[in-house]
Simulated assay, not measured.
Amino acid sequence: MSSTFPAPSSPVTRAPVSPARARTIAGYRNLALWTLQGWAAMFFFAAGYAKLTESMDNLVALMTWPALVSQNLVRGVGIVEIILALGLLMPLFSWKIGRWPLLVSAAGLVAMEAIMLTVHMIGMDIGLALTNAVLLAITIPVLLGRR
C-alpha cells in the first residue's frame, strides 16, 4: 500500500508594494538607522572624551583594563573612539563625501566592540561585557543597513 502525500502547496507570494508604501518603509528604516547611529555616536564620543580627560586612577576605578596597559594606549583608544563617533555622523556634515566614512566608522566600531567584549569577558567584567554586547547590537544593524 502506497502512502500518498498532498501536493506541495505553492509558495506564498507577496503582493507588490506600492511606491508610496515603499517610500514610507524606507523612511522608517532611515529614521531607525539614524537613531541607532546617534546613540552609538553619543556613547563613543562620551567614552572617548572620558578616556582623554579623566585621570588614570578614575579610569581604573571604572574599568580594570586601563590598569593593565599604558596611559598612551588608553588615550589613543579615546581618540579613535571620538574619530569613529564623528564618522558615524559624517553624512550630517557633508553629503558630498558620501557614506564611506560612515561605513568605515561602523566597521571600526564593530571591530573595537568585539575586541573589547572579549577583553571584558576574559577580565570577568560582566557589566562592561554586556555593555559591549548591546553596542554591537546597535552598531551591526547600522553597518548592514547603510552598506
Rank of each mutant, 00 (worst) to 15 (best):
G145D: 06
S2E: 09
A129Y: 00
G78V: 03
V134S: 13
P6T: 09
A129D: 03
W100Q: 10
L103C: 04
I140V: 15
T4F: 11
E81H: 10
L59K: 08
M121Y: 03
R99K: 14
A47T: 08
E113R: 02
S18K: 08
A47W: 01
E113N: 13
L62E: 12
W100V: 11
I122Y: 03
A133L: 15
I115A: 05
P141L: 04
W39H: 04
W95T: 08
D125A: 13
I79Q: 12
T131H: 09
G27S: 11
L144G: 06
G87C: 04
L143R: 04
A40P: 01
N30V: 02
L36D: 04
L33K: 01
L130Y: 11
M124K: 14
D125H: 06
S2M: 03
L62R: 11
T139A: 11
I140R: 03
L89C: 07
L52Y: 02
A106C: 05
V77F: 08
I79Y: 13
L143C: 04
L136I: 13
R14L: 15
V12D: 05
R75N: 09
A40L: 14
L36G: 09
Q37C: 14
M42E: 05
D57P: 00
V17Y: 07
D57M: 03
M124S: 12
V74H: 10
A61V: 03
D57E: 14
D125Q: 12
A106G: 08
F93H: 01
R99V: 09
A61F: 11
F43V: 15
A129K: 07
L136R: 05
F93T: 10
L89W: 01
A47S: 14
T35F: 15
A46E: 09
S105A: 15
L128S: 12
M112R: 00
M42D: 08
T131R: 10
M63G: 00
P141K: 04
N58Y: 03
A15E: 13
N30A: 14
Q71P: 02
G87S: 06
R14F: 13
P141Y: 06
